[in-house]
Each structure stands twice: as structure tokens, then as C-alpha cells.
């Protein structure tokens, strides 16, 4: 039966409405997890706070295993799920730019809006930076069009590449994730800071 919109069970307008509520839920969870604090986000890079890793990997393995179960029950056709196509060089370049911006600014694009919503001025500055970056990218597009479109790889899947079933890969990722959570909590003790308390308010 799923995806709902492809099989015309709901209209695209209803889809937008649902997306609106999911967006509110997403923002709520981000804020509830303290993702509007740039110290918490930057803590990921220094090891004193690994909440980011835990939240996003929990979301990823929950969604991954959930989708596979829905597919198992015949409730969703996975071949209709959009998979972002891979342009290798722009993916690497974009990752470097985003990572550098993350360390410098203390936010990622989504959390900056979350922080701006609770009135943080540095987040507003960060959003200004995003807009400037968008303008530079668009206006200078002919300069990096070649790089942007280089090394198109379609939508490769890790499970195809490793030649294993999606379910097995999801299970292995879940094990790796829980291992990482353990390492993360160890790091939080090891790199703990006197002036920073996890889950502070």
C-alpha cells in the first residue's frame, strides 16, 4: 500500500500537511535533545558530549529496521523510496564544507533553524551564512558545474556493494551503532569538562 503518495492513497496536498506535522515533531525532538545548543553539537567533535551521534544513529537504525519490517509485511514498496543519487566528488566536497561549517559555527543547517526559533543570535548569523553560501553557489554555478556533476554513480546501495541482504546490513549497522554508543559514553567520561554538564538546562 505504501508509499501513500505514489499509490495515490493520499494527495500531494495531504502529504504536505503530514510533512508539516512531522516537521514540527522533528523540530520538537531536536530542541528537546538540546540540539539548539552549539556547545552540545560541537561536543561531538571534542568527545565530551556524543548526544548527536546517539540521537541520529538511533533515528537511522529505527527508521531502517522499521522500513524493512513494513516491507516484510507488504505495507511499503521499497523500490519507490527516493534514494539521493551519488555524485562522488560533490558529496565529498559538500561533506568537507558542511563539516568545516559545523565545527566553526557550532550548528548544522537544521539545528541552526531550531536554535533561531528559540531566539539564539549566533544561529541567526549561521542562517545568514547559509544564505550567502546559497547565493555564491548559484551565482558561481558555471565555475563548479563540472565538479558538481562529476563521477555520477546512480543510487548505489551499501548492501548491493557488499553483496548482502538489506536486513543483514541493517542488523550489522545496529550492532555497530550500539558499539559506538558505548564508545561515546566512555568518551564522555574521558573527555568530560569541568564547565560542561551533559543534559544541563
Amino acid at each position: 500500500m505504501g508509499p501513500l503518495i505514489v499509490n495515490e492513497i493520499i494527495s500531494s496536498n495531504t502529504n504536505l500537511l503530514i510533512a508539516f506535522f512531522i516537521g514540527i515533531g522533528f523540530g520538537f525532538v531536536l530542541e528537546a535533545n538540546g540540539f539548539s545548543s552549539s556547545r552540545r553539537l560541537a561536543g561531538m567533535f571534542y568527545g565530551y558530549d556524543t548526544t548527536v551521534l546517539k540521537v541520529f544513529f538511533t533515528a537511522a537504525i529505527t527508521a531502517g529496521i522499521g522500513l524493512l519490517f513494513l516491507s516484510l509485511f507488504g505495507w511499503i514498496d521499497l523500490s519507490f523510496i527516493y534514494i539521493n543519487p551519488t555524485f562522488l566528488w560533490s558529496a565529498i566536497g559538500g561533506g568537507v564544507i558542511m563539516g568545516a561549517g559545523f565545527i566553526l559555527g557550532g550548528y548544522c543547517p537544521g539545528t541552526s533553524f531550531c536554535a533561531a526559533a528559540i531566539g539564539k543570535l549566533d544561529a541567526l548569523a549561521f542562517i545568514g551564512g547559509i544564505l550567502i553560501g546559497i547565493v555564491i553557489f548559484m551565482e558561481g554555478y558555471p565555475l563548479w558545474e563540472g565538479f558538481f556533476k562529476a563521477k555520477y554513480m546512480g543510487s548505489p546501495l551499501l548492501s548491493d556493494w557488499l553483496n548482502m541482504s538489506r536486513g543483514l546490513l541493517a542488523f550489522l549497522i545496529a550492532i555497530v551503532a550500539i558499539g559506538m554508543f558505548w564508545v561515546g559514553e566512555w568518551a564522555e567520561k574521558k573527555f568530560a569538562r569541568d564547565d560542561y554538564e551533559i543534559n544541563q538546562h
Partner: peptide, 9 residues
């Protein structure tokens, strides 16, 4: 998660 992952695997 791990038991569910085991089932799906």
C-alpha cells in the same frame, strides 16, 4: 533494536 535487527536479518 538488536532482536528486531536479528529478525530482519
Amino acid at each position: 533494536i538488536l532482536p528486531l535487527g536479528l529478525i530482519i536479518a
